[in-house]
Amino acid sequence: MNETTKTAQLPLLREKLFRRDRRSVAAARGFVRGVLEDWGMRALVDDVQLCVSELATNAVEHGVPPGRRFQVRVLAERDLLRVEVHDSGGGRVVVGRPELGCESGRGLLLVGLVADEWGVGEREPGKVVWCEFGLRGREGADRIRGC
């Protein structure tokens, strides 16, 4: 496929459901990698995969009730890539200060350092945790604008 046929009109959206299973974290990373490669955004793959890994892990460990699934959505608009992880569980998202030697509590801190923006939104039932990456000046941005 040549570059001309890869040009897409905005907005671009892909979404996929994953089981409440630790193996789904790797599957979510693979899904996002494939989406970004399809959209010609290879330069973002590592940062976005890191964020998806953290958000999906939190969904599996804290947000998704037994027997339910979580959803990963990837949306590209003019100058923005947004990744959302939706779960149907209760609870609030808390960003804590990890204690020395503790292996948990760093995920959202990492997301905050890597993504340009992140936040939490409500949905019924559950919540959506999202992160955004600005596309201006990044590889692939011109292809999704249709320029």
Rank of each mutant, 00 (worst) to 15 (best):
S104F: 15
L75P: 00
M41C: 02
L12N: 01
G40A: 09
D46E: 14
F133A: 08
R23Q: 15
E99F: 09
V85G: 00
Q71S: 12
G91W: 08
V48F: 08
V52I: 11
L110G: 10
G119Y: 03
V94C: 13
D116H: 08
D38S: 01
R92S: 15
L13I: 13
L108R: 10
V32A: 10
G30K: 09
D47C: 09
T57R: 10
Q9A: 15
E117F: 10
W118S: 06
R20V: 14
R138H: 07
R136F: 10
G67Q: 01
R33M: 09
G140P: 02
E84K: 10
E99Y: 12
R29P: 01
E54P: 03
M41F: 00
V93E: 07
D47N: 15
E103D: 13
D87L: 04
G121K: 04
K6H: 03
N2Q: 06
R136A: 15
G107T: 01
I144N: 01
K16I: 04
T57Q: 09
V94W: 15
R145W: 13
R68M: 10
G63H: 06
R23M: 12
R82K: 12
D21N: 15
L113D: 10
K16P: 07
R14V: 08
G101H: 09
D79I: 05
R33W: 11
T5Y: 13
T4G: 02
V120Q: 08
T57F: 07
A59R: 05
H86P: 12
E54D: 02
E61G: 06
D21Q: 09
R14S: 03
R78W: 13
V35G: 01
C131F: 11
V85A: 05
G140E: 03
R82P: 09
T57G: 13
L135S: 04
R78C: 05
G107E: 00
R68T: 11
L44N: 00
Q71C: 11
R22Q: 14
G101M: 12
R19E: 13
G137V: 06
N58Q: 05
R106E: 14
G89W: 15
G107I: 04
A27I: 10
G40Q: 08
V35D: 05
R33G: 00
V60K: 02
L10D: 04
V83I: 15
A141E: 11
E132V: 09
G119D: 02
A27Y: 08
G40I: 02
V83T: 06
R42D: 13
L110R: 11
G105H: 08
G140C: 04
S53Q: 12
C147N: 14
G67F: 00
R106K: 14
V85S: 03
A28C: 11
L75Q: 13
G107S: 03
G67D: 08
R69D: 07
R136Q: 09
V25H: 05
R145E: 06
G40R: 09
E99D: 07
R123C: 11
E61F: 11
A27Q: 14
R73W: 06
V72E: 06
V128W: 00
E3D: 00
D142N: 13
R20W: 12
G101Y: 12
L50F: 00
K127M: 11
L110E: 12
R69K: 10
G140Y: 04
P65T: 14
G137L: 01
H86F: 14
R19P: 14
